[in-house]
Design a binder for these strands. Structure first.
Lengths: 334, 334
DNA sequence: CTGTTAGCGCGTTCAT
DNA sequence: ATGAACGCGCTAACAG
């Protein structure tokens, strides 16, 4: 393992000069530049970024802490993050928490010890302590997807209220009134806001509260399945289902299938979050799609900006619009 | 930022003692342990792993270099990698190369400078130079998914020959003889081996060479689309298509749809690699599925083992079996 | 434009 | 069972 000193000796200069040439910092003459580069090449010099980071307090490293890359939404976000980061010379640690607070705490702890320059956090819980803990270490954070009440932090998220509102409005326009809302976990802000968006649309049309069917669950396939079953057991049966995310929609779809109900003939279905359309031959679900890739990009750009200039005053709350994509999973009533 | 020295001072011990207590290395009394832990907690001490790594030459960090996490196969592999790594206290850098040699070289360069302990590499090209370059730096490598002729290295991959053989044999058993093979890029070993597996099955049934239709392309949707179109233009038209990976299958499916041909009624289709069944309401493609998650796990376990014990002699070539999953995309002929 | 000095925060090595 | 000295490889700060 050759060091900067050996390169310096061979080039006949001081180590700091090698550093300046290879990092393109400060001044150096053309002649010295060539000598240093030649020496580095001859010795197959590979700079040790650990030493560099220890000295400079910059690691050029980010951590992406999310629930599960296996969810296509997060996969896409991760790609957006990685693309922007790598374009700026930053590497990304991937951390799957499975919405588990202990796992998240474990990852954050390691990541802080590794002195990453910034953290992209999809918080597993709504308390501000995790965010504050990171900030207390002087490390930048951007929260992704969810709000964290009480935290002073940049947030990049999709517009859950708008997306849900538009989906329900679309169903109402088709003549549906008995719409079952298969919601996510109430301790996650997106789940609360999606219900809120639904309620707003129902309020506008003055659908009475007693006709509204709201089921709380998880953002999972199994939960979607059981919420759908519960909705179907209800009398009178709903004519349409709203799934609060892609996994709930899939679970609901399976439940409907197992009950020999066809979409949209027997029941209409809409969902928040799209499924990866590239993998589908015929996407048919009507959805409110979030710009997952752009969210990853935007959050990372914001984080890199904070890292480059930590004295920026105001915190941003970037709310990105969802897109209503109408396909074939709903039919008009009456 | 409190340092080990400040903790030591507060606990009334030497820095090295703090190190020993917190890392559980060497001996220390119960009393000292308590004093150190109390001091560390009071000062909110966060050890600096950069300094630690610089001294110890261990970063507890891996790099996962693959083409694109957005491909569900790689997403699943990545999850397997991450799970095994994190269970052992290792963090993982995610690197998307898009099969681009320049991007790969760029990532490897950075990753070596960051002194990762090991690299999981899905090589963008079949030459051994990349692998050798990593090894020359004293860094462990495990190659994933593909063989690298000429390199002395551990490999974990799926059994392409077997999977392709079984799919073609299945088609032949259904009475198909004019089977178009939509292959991947010939510079990737899996693509070559999948063709080889096909040929083997065709040889067994003595299908004459002139009846065999083999098209070379990329592992992408667009390539799958155009290869399928080319196959359809062939006369006599094939009765079945073999797609060398999931993306080719999707492209082929779209081409068939655009040509108003139905699967399996008008044409049968089989594919290497499964699509994420959890996201599908009704998976219908007959496939040879690779154990993606297990491949990630296995490769990581192997890498961690090498890191723990670099003197292991023989290199492993772990070939994991594919699974033939028969669904509804093929029909019997005649 | 180039160099000297010093030290980032740890753990290895050796001593007791 | 504990500690002293030293240095891992690099760059910030200051000279000149």
């Amino acid at each position: 393992m050759t060091t900067i000193r050996e390169v310096a000796k061979r080039a006949g200069v001081a180590p700091i000069t090698v550093s300046r040439v290879l990092n393109k910092t400060g001044y150096f003459s053309q002649e010295i530049k060539e000598r240093v580069e030649a020496a580095a090449a001859e010795l197959h010099y590979v700079p040790n970024l650990l030493a560099s980071s220890l000295r400079s307090n910059r690691t050029n490293t980010l951590a992406l802490v999310l629930s599960d890359v296996t969810n296509p939404f997060w996969t896409t976000v991760a790609r957006g993050v990685e693309d922007v980061a790598s374009a700026d010379g930053f590497m990304v640690f991937l951390c799957n928490t499975d919405e588990n607070e202990a796992k998240q705490a474990q990852y954050l702890s390691v990541v802080l010890r590794k002195r990453v320059d910034g953290v992209l956090l999809v918080p597993a819980r709504s308390t501000p302590t995790d965010v504050q803990m990171i900030q207390k270490q002087g490390i930048q954070v951007v929260v992704l997807d969810r709000t964290v009440p009480g935290a002073q932090v940049d947030v990049v998220r999709g517009n859950s209220i708008q997306g849900a509102y538009e989906l329900i409005k679309y169903l109402l326009d088709l003549g549906h009134r008995r719409i079952a809302i298969l919601a996510g976990p109430t301790n996650v802000s997106t789940a609360r806001e999606r219900v809120q968006g639904c309620q707003h649309a129902l309020d506008e049309r003055q659908v009475p509260s007693e006709e509204r069917l709201i089921l709380d669950g998880e953002y999972t396939i199994t939960s979607g399945y059981s919420m759908a079953e519960a909705a179907l057991a209800h009398s009178p049966r709903p004519t349409a289902l709203f799934a609060a995310n892609n996994f709930i929609a899939i679970g609901a779809l399976k439940a409907l299938q197992d009950n020999h109900l066809r979409v949209p003939d027997d029941l209409s279905l809409v969902s928040f979050d799209d499924l990866p359309t590239t993998l589908m031959v015929q996407p048919f679900l009507t959805v409110a799609a979030q710009p997952a890739y752009e969210m990853g990009q935007r959050a990372t750009a914001l984080l890199l900006q904070r890292i480059a200039n930590p004295t920026v005053a105001a915190y941003a709350d970037v709310v990105m619009p969802t897109q209503l994509i109408i396909r074939q999973s709903c039919r008009a009533l009456g």
